[in-house]
Simulated scan of single mutants.
Amino acid sequence: MALRFDGRIAGFGTASGVRVVVGMWPRSPLGSFADVMLERADGHRVLLAPSDAVARFVSETYTFDEVRIVPVRYSRRSRVISVEAGPFAARFTVGGISPLGRLLRIVPRRLATSPAWLRLIDPVARILVPGARTAGSAGGGRREYYGVTSARGITAITATWEGHDLGYLTRLHPPVRFGFGSAPAAPHIVEVVTTIIERA
């Protein structure tokens, strides 16, 4: 069985050393939801999820040291996206289509989101975007495929964690360690179809 999540992922680093990945999923088997994966400078990995069902599914797919169930909301006004998730809050500004995004647009969407294609190009993706992967393990014998169809740079952020300012925008480095791959080091928001293939 194939589970398909259609939405956006934003990834960025901060001057404090906290690295953040925000998933915004208007279309998914779990309904419309957003979640936040955060890795502190000391390597502690936190999932902020809006429900028990989302927390259970995501923590079965990725690895965290801590899971919190909190209201997670996001909104977009023009090029500014706002996210609130319990102890985390952020506003980030989305720029134009990046060079990576222009490259991705060459591939037709149907092909770009196909697991067979993503399995084939995974070795190339690792070279072009260090840390990124298009195919890998989703745990429990499942396989996961990231089909990115567009990418825009993130140009500025304001963010807080547990009331503390996280500082200015930086590269997402070192890579986050939630799953088999990381978001690009350069701060980006990508349009993506994530497909998880369950065991037969």
Rank of each mutant, 00 (worst) to 15 (best):
L103W: 08
Y62R: 03
S98C: 13
V72A: 08
A85W: 02
D122P: 08
E144W: 14
P50E: 08
V124M: 10
V107H: 06
Y74K: 03
I127Q: 03
A132C: 13
L48W: 01
A89C: 05
R142N: 01
L118G: 00
P115H: 11
L128F: 08
P108W: 11
L47R: 00
R73N: 09
Y62V: 04
P87E: 11
F88Q: 01
L100I: 15
R143W: 07
I121P: 00
V148K: 15
V83W: 02
P130V: 06
R133W: 07
R143S: 12
S137T: 10
D52K: 14
L118W: 01
R143Y: 08
T113W: 13
V70Y: 00
T93K: 03
R77F: 08
T61Y: 11
L120D: 09
R126L: 03
L103N: 06
R102N: 05
A135E: 06
P108M: 08
G101W: 12
S114D: 15
R102P: 14
S98H: 15
V80A: 14
S150R: 11
S59F: 05
V83G: 04
I69S: 01
P50Y: 11
A135P: 01
D122A: 09
F88W: 01
V54E: 13
R77S: 14
V70W: 01
V83Y: 09
P87N: 06
V107D: 04
L118V: 02
V83C: 02
P50F: 12
Y74A: 07
P50A: 07
R105V: 09
S59H: 05
A151L: 10
G141D: 05
V107C: 11
P123N: 12
P115R: 11
R102Y: 06
I97S: 14
V83A: 01
V124C: 10
R126E: 13
A49K: 04
E144T: 11
T113L: 06
T61V: 15
A151Q: 10
T61L: 13
R91M: 04
A55F: 04
P71K: 01
T134P: 04
S75C: 10
S51D: 03
G86V: 03
V148Q: 15
G136E: 07
V124K: 04
S82H: 04
S51W: 02
E60R: 09
R126P: 06
E84F: 07
P99M: 13
L47K: 00
Y145M: 01
P130Q: 05
R73P: 05
G140W: 13
I121D: 03
A55M: 05
Y146M: 05
T61H: 10
G86I: 02
I127S: 03
S78K: 15
I97A: 14
A55L: 05
I69K: 01
I81R: 04
E144S: 14
P99L: 13
G141Q: 04
V107Q: 02
E60C: 07
Y146S: 03
R126K: 12
R56Y: 12
G131C: 09
V70Q: 02
V54M: 09
A116M: 15
L120H: 07
W117Q: 00
T149K: 08
S78P: 07
R142P: 03
A89S: 12
R109F: 09
A85P: 02
G131Y: 04
L128D: 00
G95H: 15
D65G: 01
G147S: 10
A85L: 03
T134N: 00
R91N: 11
S82Q: 13
V70L: 00
Y145I: 02
A55S: 08
V94C: 14
G101T: 06
P50N: 09
